[in-house]
Nucleic acid binder design. Structure first.
Lengths: 265, 265
DNA sequence: GCGTACATATCCCCAAAGGGATAGTTTTTG
DNA sequence: CAAAAACTATCCCTTTGGGGATATGTACGC
């Protein structure tokens, strides 16, 4: 069954946390426990679009299909639904996660939506997935797939993979934690407090509003639309802000703010 | 023997990497494999003074003795010598590491130098130590100690601990890597640490260099002059960085980094 | 009433960043 | 050794930001 080999390899996986070859190494180590053909890791952060964190699809899924999936068809994915439900950390068969009629529906059969299932070379024998929580609202999904013509995973294999699951989910979370935007951190209370304690008195209320929007990543045009004023007005405000703070670029503004954040800590 | 319990607990240890309760949890998990009374983790970075990273000494070592050790008597320590030699990662008995006359020398017998050995309550039955490399010149040492009146570690216990050693050393390195100033980093400031822990694995070394310069406020031209490459090359790197991080502007890069800073706190 | 500060808005010009495409050289890695 | 990845470089074109100058409306206080 290969559990001994699995235990032998886990220390190596731990040492590869945070390194670029972690994904391939995880594939390799798990292949000692049970055979599979394709893998991938997606993050489903909050209500945002998924991120492809690891691509073990061997080029079977075209870039166009992947782009489709990331742009919207993921909403129809049973794995996505499970991550939103959410389910506890562990190993799941796709058949368990999917509604009864899933495999009869348009999604599964469409050749243009799923990055893994619908490939030119045929259909999948089975997909199983490790699900790991990164935060209350973010889940990682590590899929193992068997291609057409092969058997489904036996219960013996599943049992061995289930034994490995606690380690797999812990590894997934540790390695990819820093690759996924933190839970609402960018508009969290911490950031709010940092904004309001940033140069109070020097800037007018309106200017503070504009600074906080700039720091959140908005362009002048985007700010103008948000506040329902002209783009030129926003640019003018930014000009005044720069003059007051004694800086001459957005970059310096970010630097001031980073210094402010660190100084507070 | 407890190897089954050990394997059960390692996933929890992995999930605690980077969290404050990792040290105690490691002590607890290893105590299932073999009994011991006291523990501690030191880092020996380059040629600098050691750092006490984990204190499982239960107050047996006085602050004064610890200060002495950190200030200079560590130079006489056999564990320090082993880390400077250096020895390969693994588990060692202190008796193996020490020169033959070590236990007869002034160091071992002095009541004022060793943070663990010389305590009021008596002497040690034995000390064993896991040594893990953090970098070519930095080693971590995780000591397990049995107090007076107990037996030394049996060969059976040592064998069990040696089986666990690859995982233990990998865990040590991962958890405490960010606690020890990077190799040759002059100041190892907060900001430096934040830069180096920003999306590891996603970006190449060169790309990380460019990101850190951009975040410091440099323009493409300024970076080009600093690195003595063409401005277009810098712009190209930035293009690739944006693609990898899934963003499309400097502003978003700053946002990611601010989120990273806040997320770490 | 008048000055001041603030928010709004427009024009022009230049510097910088973003992005597609392509390609030669070096380094890493299997 | 051969393939892959990374680093280097250039061309061209669009979008965004930065800054000078200027102007109108509005709210507040003296």
């Amino acid at each position: 069954m290969g559990m001994a080999q699995w235990h032998d390899r886990t220390p190596i996986l731990v040492s590869l946390i945070g390194r670029p070859d972690f994904g391939p190494a995880l594939d390799l180590a798990l292949s000692q426990v049970a055979a599979f053909d394709l893998t991938c890791v997606f993050a489903y952060p909050g209500e945002e679009r998924p991120l492809l964190l690891h691509d073990g699809l061997r080029g079977v899924s075209s870039p166009a299909i992947m782009a489709n999936y990331l742009n919207g068809t993921y909403l129809l994915d049973a794995v996505y639904a499970a991550c939103r439900r959410p389910v506890p950390d562990g190993l799941y068969r796709l058949r368990e996660l999917a509604p009864d009629d899933f495999f009869e529906g348009d999604y599964f059969k469409s050749p243009a939506v799923h990055p893994c299932i619908s490939m030119e070379t045929g259909t999948l024998a089975e997909e199983i997935v490790f699900i790991a929580a990164l935060s209350p609202s973010t889940r990682l999904a590590y899929s193992l797939m068997r291609q057409n013509g092969r058997e489904t995973f036996t219960e013996t294999e599943m049992e061995a993979l289930r034994t490995a699951a606690p380690m797999v989910t812990a590894l997934l979370a540790q390695h990819w934690r820093s690759h996924v935007p933190a839970d609402g951190a960018v508009d969290g209370a911490l950031l709010e407090r940092a904004f309001s304690s940033f140069r109070p008195g020097t800037l007018t209320a309106r200017e503070q509003t504009i600074v906080s929007l700039v720091l959140r990543g908005h362009s002048s045009l985007s700010i103008a639309r948000l506040l329902d004023i002209a783009e030129g007005t926003v640019k003018n405000h930014r000009k005044h802000i720069h003059a007051k703070l004694g800086i001459s670029s957005q970059t310096e503004l970010f630097n001031l703010f980073i210094g402010h954040l660190i100084g507070e800590a």
